[in-house]
Amino acid sequence: MNCQSVVNVEDLYAEGRLSPSRTASVRAHIKECASCSARLKDELLSLKGPSASAPKDLKNRMKALLAKIETEEPPPQAKPWAFDSEMWPVVTSIAIYLGLALLLAWTVPGAPSQRYGQAGTEAQP
């Protein structure tokens, strides 16, 4: 592996998700490459974060948040068939498709499909 290959997989390596064979090759590279070794050390430290413990009031904050959610009225469910902004890409795609299809059907020269009409070209004896 070269340095750039290590850069491209270092997030997986830091998370411990890289396959054992690839992990071994990354480790072999780190042993020989000081810059990659230093960079990966930083990466691992940044993943660990400045503080390993959760805030003291996290539990209470979560409880309060859950209580608030339970008392609140649920938001109105979006109607999938309603014509909202999310439908625009679909409508646009269908319009483009239909437009292209009509353009193709009218502009491309050619005879009407022969399958739904006569026989083929075989000469009779």
Binding site: M1, S5, N8, V9, S19, S21
Partner: peptide, 12 residues
Amino acid sequence: GAFVSVLPLPLR
């Protein structure tokens, strides 16, 4: 299974 096999592209 948490592992991922990768084929890295050795380019910047």
